[in-house]
């Protein structure tokens, strides 16, 4: 019997696509459109709208706190891309080695934090970092490393690092699994022939494995970048942007402006600003990474 793919008529096409488009529009497209709309107004909720043109955008460009929060976000993002994708890649490569016992168990355990809610992760790490009864300082003390004890979340100089460790811990498993999948698709024969040619394990990783999974790696960096640039939950729970403003990210700042100060229209402007920044950064990274082709 011959199966023919029927070309769907317009009506069917519409019916099939409608639910998806509808939901997507409702939760993504329209909020963005509304935000753009409100960003041109002075609005604190309710019915009174007061058109002020690009006033909010001019304000944003002169807002030192917004730039500070951008700087903080950039630091956290840099740490996280290196920590999540970089270390995730290293773990994935090690897990492909034959000398690793119980690779399945390692994979499961490292992946586990991914399924925890970010809020819970934030709470867990607040307890780990607690100055008085926290696991970390307790461990350092019992190891005789008392001088390493820090106010992990109170010291403005290290708070971004402390938060990043918690976020990296949570998501490293995700990138490990993505990259492991790509590594397992490399034909065994390629690896074997490189071994015969005398390539060391390190050379294998750098010269063969990474180039061969480069497209996947690129995707992983993109996901990580976009995810970390809009980081919110962990920081909200762990420090609330503090101490002072030392761990305030763009989204946390936007939240404070919108909901603590009820400046909803300026908050909308900031969200548009954040979207533009994320677009520019991910776009630029894509350009840079895409320029170098290994395949």
């Amino acid at each position: 019997m011959e199966w023919r793919i029927q070309k769907p008529n317009k009506k069917m096409l519409f019916c099939a696509l409608a639910p998806g488009i509808l939901i997507y529009s409702f939760i993504i497209v329209f909020p963005i459109l509304f935000s753009i709309f409100y960003s041109f107004y002075d609005w604190t909720g309710g019915d009174d709208l007061n058109f002020i043109g690009i006033g909010n955008y001019i304000l944003m460009l002169h807002d030192a706190d917004f730039f500070l929060s951008f700087r903080n976000t950039a630091v956290i993002t840099a740490l996280n891309v290196v920590g999540q994708v970089g270390v995730g890649l290293a773990i994935a490569i090690v897990l492909t080695r034959e000398y690793v016992k119980l690779p399945g168990l390692h994979r499961t355990l490292i992946f586990m934090p991914v399924i925890i809610s970010p809020v819970v992760t934030g709470l867990i790490w607040s307890i780990v970092y607690n100055n008085r009864s926290g696991l970390l300082n307790l461990a350092l003390r019992s190891l005789g490393l008392g001088s390493w004890i820090q106010l992990w979340l109170d010291n403005p100089d290290i708070v971004l690092g402390s938060i990043s460790v918690a976020v990296i811990w949570q998501y490293i498993g995700l990138y490990m699994v993505i990259l492991l999948g790509a590594l397992e698709n490399i034909p065994q024969s390629v690896i074997e022939s490189s071994m015969i040619d005398g390539a060391s394990p390190f050379q294998q990783a750098i010269k063969i494995m990474i180039p061969m999974i480069y497209p996947t790696l690129k995707v992983a960096v993109m996901i990580c970048l976009a995810g970390t640039l809009k980081i919110f939950d962990h920081i909200f729970v762990m420090t609330g942007g503090g101490p002072g403003k030392s761990s305030m990210t763009m989204t946390q700042y936007d939240y404070n402006i919108s909901f603590n100060m009820l400046r909803l229209s300026y908050g909308s402007t900031l969200s548009i600003g954040i979207i533009v920044i994320i677009f520019v950064i991910t776009g630029a990274t894509l350009k840079v990474m895409g320029g170098k082709r290994y395949e």
Partner: peptide
């Protein structure tokens, strides 16, 4: 009003950690 309170709160934390 809330906009003053936000600075009153946040910037005091900066003072407490010696940044202001």
């Amino acid at each position: 009003p809330a906009k003053i309170v936000d600075v009153y709160y946040n910037d005091l934390q900066d003072l407490l950690i010696g940044k202001l």
